[in-house]
Design a protein around this nucleic acid. Structure first.
Lengths: 342, 342
DNA sequence: TCAGTAACTGACAACGCTGTCAATATTGTC
DNA sequence: GACAATATTGACAGCGTTGTCAGTTACTGA
C-alpha cells in the first residue's frame, strides 16, 4: 500500500510537498505539482484517512444522529446527506440515540460528549424529533461542534436550521380545501412534543380564521404521526353524527389511516370525504386514491444541512452559515375534491 | 481533552498499562485495573478513535454500500446494522455507489480500491442490487476485506451471505393462493438482473407444478420492482379477456400498483381478484385492503451481517463466518381471499 | 548589479494511541 | 532457599499524515 513517502521518492520531492499538492495548498510550482500528481497516480497512492484525521484534528466526517423510529422522512434526508458527503469527500456516519427524553441532563452530556470526543465529527445533523429537543440543544451548545437541525423547530439561538415554512404550507393546503367548498374541515394532530404539530395546526387554524370559519374543537383529533392513530382518528371523526367533509391529517401516515377508516365504512373518496396529508412520503402516491399532500424537498434539506456543516468546518464561507428555508409544494392528487352536495 | 497520558499519570502507571486496561487485555492485576478505571473516569477520558485506528490498523468501522435507489428494504437493513454497530462500539459509515453496471472493470477496482485504502473498513455490507453483482464480487475478492452480502444471491464462492429462502417463501405463498382455490395465478416479475426475481419466480412455478397447474406464460408480466411497473402489469393482466383470479407481484411496491389498477377498474379486492406481494414493506399494511405478503426479517438480516463482519474482524469466532439463512413468515392480511365463484 | 522581498521547498516534530520487547515481580518446585 | 517459570509492568518506537519553521530560490525595484 503506497504512502506519501513513496510518492515523494518517485517525484523526487519531500513528503511535505506531496502533502501540499494533494491538499491543493499554495506555494508549489505548477511543474512540480504535475510531477507529484503523476507520481501519485503511478504508485496508486490513496491518502490514509486515519493518519490525516489524527494529525489535522479534523475528521472529514459528518454524524447524523437519528432516533430509532426511522421513517421515509429520515431516510430521504439521510440520502441527501450521503450525496453531499460523497461529493465533498466526507464520510457520513450514522448514530442512534434513543430514550433521550428520559435521560437526565448529565447522562445526555456524557453520551454526546463521548460521541464527540471519540470521533470529533466535523458536524452533527439532527433530525426530528431530536432536532426539536431543547435540552439537547442546551447540551450541544456546550460542545464545540457545529450542529445542523433539520425540520421544523423553534430554537431561536440555534445556528443552522434547515426547514420549510410548515405553517404557510398547512395554511395553503387548508385554503385549497376551503376553495373546494369545504367548511367542516377536521384536523388530526401529531405528537405533541414536536413542533411540526403546532406549526401545521397553526397554519390550519389561520386559514380557517381568514375564511371566517369558526374553529370547531370537536373536529380536532389527537394523534402521534402513526398510521394507527390516523385509523382511530378516522373512525372517531367519520362515525360522528355530523362528520367533517374533509380531513387534514398532520402527516401522510395518519392520512393513510384515515383513508383506511373511510374505506372500511364504505365511503368513497373524495366523493364522500376529502382527505389530505403532509410530507409526500413514499406511500402518498401508492394509496387508493393517491393522496393530495405537501411535498417537502427532503433531499435538498439533507444537502443543505450537510453543505453548511462542511462549509463551517472548512471555513470556506465568509460568515457562519445561518440555515435555510426551502420551498415546499402542494401535490395535487386524487384524495381531495369538491365538497359533497347536501 | 484528557488523553491516555493524563490517565496514566493520575493512576501512577505507564500509558501502556492504561491501554491494556481500557482494551481489556490480560496481564494487569485487578487492583491496578480498578485504579486505572477510576482514574479514567476522574479525568473524563475518552479514547481518540483516529489515533487508535492509525496505530492498530483497524478502523472499527463497517461500511454499508448502497445504490441510489433507496428503499424501505435497504432502510430497515441499515437500521439493523446501526443497532449492532452501536452495541459493539463500531461506526456505521454509509457509502453511495452508482452506475456500477456501466463501469469498466478497472474503474470498479479503482473506486473500491480507494474506498478501502482510504478508510480500511473492518467490513463491507452490500445490499441488493449490489449484493448480486458478480463483477463486484470479483473486484472485491481482490481486496483483503470481509464482505457481507444481504439478500438473495447465488454467488457460490462468497463468504458471508445473509438471506432468507426466497424460493421457499414464494412457493409457500403461491401454495396458499392455490389452497384458496385459485388456478389462474398471474406473476409480476422484478428487475431481471436481480436474483430475487428468478428465485421468487422459481418458487411460484414450483408450486404451480406441484399442484398440477400448467404455467400459463401469458400470465407472467414483466416488471422492475417499482410501483409504475405494477400499475402497468395490473392493467395489462386484469383487462384481458380471461383475467387471472389472483396476482402475485414479486414485491410490495408492484403489488400496490396492481392494487391501484384494480381499484381504477372498479374491482373489489379480494372479492374480484386476490393480490399478494413480497417484502412486507412499510406500505403493505397501509394499503386498502392491507396486503398479504412475505415478511423478511430485515432488522435481523442487518444484525447478522454486521455481527459476522465484526466477528471476522476481531477473530473472535473460532472459524470464519459462513453466512446465515433466516426465517421468513407469511403475513396474512386482507388482499387475498377465496377464488370468485363462477 | 544588488539588497529586499516574496515565493517556494524541505527537515523535523507531533498528533494519541498500540505493538514489541525487555525488565521486573511473583509464584511454584524441589 | 535457589532456581526456573510465569505473570505483570514499562520504555520506546512508530502508525502516516500535517503544522511549524527555517532554508533556499526567484523576482522585484532602485
Amino acid at each position: 500500500m503506497a504512502k506519501m513517502i513513496d510518492v515523494a521518492r518517485r517525484a523526487g520531492v519531500s513528503i511535505k510537498t506531496v502533502s501540499r499538492v494533494l491538499n491543493n495548498e499554495p506555494h508549489v510550482k505548477d511543474a512540480l505539482r504535475e510531477k507529484v500528481r503523476a507520481a501519485a497516480r503511478d504508485v496508486g497512492y490513496v491518502p490514509s484517512a486515519p493518519a490525516r484525521r489524527l494529525r489535522s484534528r479534523r475528521s472529514y466526517t459528518i454524524h447524523m444522529v437519528s432516533h430509532s423510529h426511522r421513517s421515509n422522512y429520515v431516510n430521504a434526508i439521510q440520502f441527501g446527506a450521503m450525496q453531499t458527503c460523497q461529493d465533498e469527500g466526507y464520510q457520513l456516519v450514522m448514530s442512534l440515540m434513543d430514550d433521550l427524553r428520559d435521560m437526565p441532563m448529565d447522562a445526555l452530556k456524557q453520551r454526546f460528549g463521548e460521541l464527540i470526543a471519540a470521533s470529533r465529527p466535523d458536524g452533527l445533523i439532527l433530525v426530528p424529533p431530536l432536532s426539536n429537543d431543547e435540552r439537547l440543544f442546551e447540551v450541544l451548545s456546550g460542545f464545540d461542534v457545529p450542529v445542523a437541525r433539520v425540520g421544523p423547530n423553534d430554537i431561536p439561538a440555534a445556528q443552522i436550521i434547515v426547514k420549510i415554512d410548515e405553517r404557510a404550507a398547512a395554511r395553503e393546503l387548508t385554503e385549497y380545501l376551503i376553495g373546494l367548498g369545504h367548511r367542516r374541515i377536521a384536523f388530526v394532530r401529531g405528537k405533541e412534543d414536536q413542533n411540526a404539530t403546532s406549526e401545521r395546526y397553526a397554519g390550519y387554524s389561520e386559514a380557517l380564521a381568514a375564511a371566517g370559519i369558526a374553529l370547531d374543537e370537536s373536529l380536532v383529533a389527537p394523534g402521534d404521526f402513526n398510521f394507527e392513530a390516523g385509523l382511530d382518528a378516522g373512525h372517531a371523526l367519520l362515525e360522528r353524527d355530523a362528520p367533517p367533509t374533509a380531513v387534514f391529517a398532520a402527516n401522510d401516515d395518519m392520512a393513510a389511516g384515515v383513508l383506511m377508516a373511510a374505506h372500511r365504512m364504505g365511503l368513497e373518496i373524495p366523493r364522500d370525504v376529502s382527505i389530505v396529508g403532509f410530507d409526500d412520503s413514499e406511500i402518498a402516491e401508492k394509496m387508493w386514491p393517491a393522496l393530495t399532500t405537501v411535498r417537502q424537498p427532503l433531499l435538498e434539506l439533507g444537502h443543505s444541512a450537510t453543505r453548511q456543516l462542511i462549509d463551517a468546518a472548512s471555513r470556506r464561507a465568509p460568515e457562519p452559515p445561518r440555515g435555510a428555508v426551502l420551498d415546499y409544494s402542494i401535490i395535487h392528487r386524487d384524495s381531495a375534491g369538491p365538497v359533497p352536495a347536501r
